[in-house]
Design a protein around this nucleic acid. Sequence first.
RNA 1: GGUCCUUUGGCCGAGUGGCUUAGGCAAAGCUCUGCAAAAGCUUCUACAGCGGUUCGAAUCCGCUAGGGACCUCCA
Length: 502
Amino acid sequence: MALHIYNSYTRKKEIFESITPGYVGMYVCGPTVSGESHLGHARPYISFDVVYRYLTYKKYKVRYVRNITDAGHFEEEGREAEDKVSKKAQIEKLEPMELVQKYTNLFHWAMKQFNCVEPSIEPTATGHIVEQIVMIEDIISKGYAYEVNGSVYFDVKKYAASHDYGKLSGRVIDELLDAGNREDVSRELDGQQEKRDAADFALWKAAPPEHIMRWKSPWGEGFPGWHIECSAMATKYLGSNFDIHGGGMDLLFPHHESEIAQSTICNHSAPVKYWMHNNMITINGRKMGKSYNNVIKLTEMFSGNHPLLTQAFHPMTVRFFILQSHYRSTLDFSSEALSASEKALKRLWDAYEVLKNLPVSNNTTPTDSELDSKITNWLNEFEIFMDDDLGSPRVIANMFEIAPIINSLKDGLIPFDAISASTLQKMKDSFQVYLEDVFGLTNINDQNNELLNPIMQLLLDIRKEAKANKDFATSDKIRNQLTQLGILIKDDKEGNTTWGVA
RNA sequence: GGUCCUUUGGCCGAGUGGCUUAGGCAAAGCUCUGCAAAAGCUUCUACAGCGGUUCGAAUCCGCUAGGGACCUCCA
């Protein structure tokens, strides 16, 4: 079966065929580094990380570009107030790049916690001002943009006359064009009056005197508009036609719609073959977002320091939580749901560890061929499900079908010759590939360090001796006090004992 | 107001015409165990409401009700 992905542009699942066989160009809208990332932000980066990993698994050579938006249209908290106190000395004033650096570092740290693969190229908007200016000049020269008072706007009406503006987002162009005349949608936007039409969007904005981030341009000092950076950087690194563009559904309009318009004018063709959009993480049924005042920052997730959280959550729990739902469904957050994921992941990973240690025999004929073929079928479905628009939840479900079998093999509840050696090997291989390589999950019990392991072994030995002597007071003391310390003791049927962090 | 989406068991969530309608968490019982935990087994079986299409619908269509997203920066 070939990989199928849902294309937001055509609103259909399509067979994935890369433009250049064997190679994939993928662009994902990155963070605006004017503040701390929250749980909602984690979703696209984890979802598209899995896309990247899966494409790599499918032997594609992927160039993955994810930008850092560090210029132009962001209004970092507190800056306005700071700007007004301009009598401060230079060193005391808020330096925008200082903020950008701080939140970029924090973002990178979070991505590392999530075990997200670093993009091939991570371009910044401030590093590509020239490219953006060149692109804007090109659009002007082609007659699809105009300058007013040092700002440049894209002429949507003209573009829409010959192109399908609104197709991606399902917008009705006539409504957009007369939107400015309607009271219910008119908002306070800078320069609304100088635009030819309310639907026009800025390519370049003249900087008011108090605006700190500013660059020289053919139209005076200013900063790039809302959407041009992605078009400029995607074109630069992936060409005028590339395979996948990803981002959150909330970017569909106006951001991605405008990207299509800009790039189409510059490059004479639609830029992207497959548009992929992840759905939102909600909280009490509502999108997590700054304007709703319901965000949980990632640092808060990991520390548990938030009124809505009953505990801290490991980054891998968050990652697993996200993978347990399909990327195009909304995912409702709750502390309970996260706790459930935490336990589930622990159980699954424990089974995986057990699986890794199961000895492979040379048994060629399974005594329980029905079970053997059931397992084979579940394993084969891993790829089938992923090929069907990244069905990670169904892959995980299959893993949970297999987990009890793994434990039963270990405990001798299922005899070893029930399944063939090749099936067992396939289990080992498939679990490793999907759990680690494709889903990017790691062992949550990373406390297993060189110092602790021998100490634990010592304690377990003492406990074993005590049990052998029927000195249950001692054995229970060790077990109970370790439990209090958050370490779980597990005895198996053969009298072996393992331990893990609760 | 416009466009679009969504409504699955106590909770979270797969699943788009019939095949056993996932899986996880919670709960209960049992097995194992010195007692626990872990593990295993079993139970709890749902598709918002109404109507239609069909031999057959959670799955397609219509209506009603609830929820949501976008139309403005937004993952």
